[in-house]
Amino acid sequence: MKAAVIVFPGSNCDRDVAVSLEKSMGQKPLMLWHRTTEVPADLDLIVVPGGFSYGDYLRSGAMAAHSPVMQEVKERAAKGVRVLGICNGFQILTEAGLLPGALMRNRDLKFICRDVHLTVERTDTDFTRGYAKGQVIRVPVAHHDGNYFADDSLLERIEGNGQVAFRYASANGEVSEASNINGSRNNIAGVFNEAGTVLGMMPHPERLADPQLGGIDGKPLFDSLVEALCK
């Protein structure tokens, strides 16, 4: 399996996600600078990591979505290469049009940095096959713009297609307004594209993927990808 992590000016979770990938894959992923247009042909997975790409100027992810490497990412995604966007990476993928909806300022206008609980909505994808149906996982969030928005018709389509990957929930898995940390529509914390080959999520699985970090609920996501993509 061959994976790459994109690095933008202002990325700050690129190394963490590389460590998590290496632990699951047994080898280091490539680190690709945002200016490159030379992306190896045989990549199985591209990760767009968290951070504050280009200072989050204009809108979070807006500048990064038009960087040279993203044109390559779009072309690979169209060919079915798996793409994972975490936090700022999720914002970038929505701005690039690879995922539906948009991420807006948190409802309470505060930066939220803490562990949250998520329900796993799908376990039949390459990203989530390592989880159990309906499993509640604990993963950290750290974002200012994580308020997922889709208008009524788009929301209906996303829900109808089963594109919701994770929802903000209580520790016992109750999805309600009380567990909706940032105002996201339908408590959405992560979405797939229609084909289920691109995933964007605000929580950081790479930050709880090692017992020494206090939890491993993020690890099955990377293990799932390795299991699915190792030929």
């Binding site: 807006a62 038009h66 928005f149």
Partner: peptide, 8 residues
């Protein structure tokens, strides 16, 4: 293309 996100 850039200045506005027409989703929102």
């Amino acid at each position: 293309q850039l200045l506005a996100n027409t989703v929102i």
